[in-house]
Write a protein that binds this DNA or RNA. Structure first.
Lengths: 149, 149
DNA sequence: TTTGGTGCAAATAATTTGCAGTCTC
DNA sequence: GAGACTGCAAATTATTTGCACCAAA
C-alpha cells in the first residue's frame, strides 16, 4: 500500500470494527479506499472503482458497507445531485460542497464559509451539520456562458 | 374556490400555460393547489392529496405535472430528506429550509439568513440558488432531548 | 379538428432484503 | 466453531416511458 490516506484510515478501520465486534474484510478495505481515492463518489461509482480491482464485489455489499463505514464515522455523505448521495472520507477536513447545476462541478470550501449561518442558527439552538451541506447554483464560467439550448 | 393563494396562482397558471401553448386541465389545477396547500410535499404526498379529491389521478401525471409547473416557475423543489424531493409554491417568499434530521421538522427562514454566504460566493462569481438550499442539523428540542435508542 | 394531456401498464433505476455458503476472529 | 459477511437473486420503491384514447382550444 503506498497511499498515505489509505494507510492512516485502514488502522482506524481495523480498530473501530474491532470495537464494535465487527469484522475486517477485504471488501470493507477496498470500499473505504475507493471512497478516499474518488473524493466524492456515489455508490455506483464506488462499485465500479472497486470492481476494477476485484470484479466479484457486489452492489449490495457496497450499500451495506457504506452504511457501516458511516456509522463508524469513517465516511460521510451529502446530496450533491438530485439523485444519488455522494460519499467522502472523514479524513479530509470537514468542508462545504458548492455545486454548479449547469456543469455539475463540485468545489469544496472551508467551513468558515458558513460561519455566519451556523452562528445565526445557533442562536435558535439549531446545530448545523456542516459536512452534509450542499449549496447549489451556477459557477462563474457557466454564468458567463450563454444559456444551454 | 375559497383559497386566496390558489385563486392568485390559478390565474398565473392559466396565463403561463397559454403562453407556452400548453393546456389548462383539472389535474394541473389540482396538483398546483395541492402543492400550495401542503406547503412542502413530495410527489407521493401530492398524489395522495389530489386523490382525496379526484381518485382517478395517476402518479405519472403528478410527476409530469410537477415538472411542467416547475418549468413555468410556479413551483420549486428542494431536497429535504435523503429521499424524495419536496415541492413548494413560488407564491411564498423565497426561503431557506432548515431541517432537523432527528424529528424531521422543517422551518423556513428568510433568505437573509444566508446573505453572508451568498455574498462570499458571489466574490468567486458563484450564484447561489437560495430557494433550493436545505440546511440539515438538529433543532433545539432534539439537542436537549437524550439520544434516541 | 388538432394537438396536447391523461391513465394504464410495462420498463427502468436505485436500493433493500432473505438466504445459504464463506470467511474472520 | 460461532457468528458476522458476502454474493446472488428476488423484492421494493421511485420514477419514467410508450401508447391508445380523451379532451382543451
Amino acid at each position: 500500500m503506498s497511499d498515505d490516506a489509505a494507510t492512516g484510515s485502514e488502522e482506524s478501520l481495523a480498530t473501530r470494527l474491532r470495537e464494535q465486534g465487527l469484522r475486517l474484510t477485504p471488501q470493507r478495505q477496498l470500499i473505504l479506499r475507493a471512497v478516499e481515492e474518488l473524493r466524492h463518489a456515489t455508490p455506483d461509482e464506488v462499485l465500479a472503482h472497486v470492481r476494477g480491482q476485484v470484479s466479484s464485489v457486489n452492489a449490495s455489499t457496497v450499500y451495506r458497507t457504506l452504511e457501516v463505514l458511516e456509522e463508524l464515522g469513517l465516511v460521510r455523505h451529502a446530496h450533491l445531485s438530485d439523485r444519488a448521495p455522494t460519499y467522502h472520507s472523514t479524513l479530509e477536513h470537514e468542508h462545504v460542497h458548492v455545486v454548479c447545476r449547469r456543469c455539475d462541478s463540485v468545489r469544496s470550501y472551508d467551513t468558515e464559509l458558513v460561519g455566519p449561518l451556523v452562528a445565526a442558527l445557533a442562536e435558535d439552538g439549531f446545530t448545523v451539520d456542516v459536512g452534509h451541506l450542499a449549496i447549489f447554483g451556477e459557477c462563474a464560467s457557466c454564468v458567463a456562458r450563454p444559456q444551454e439550448p
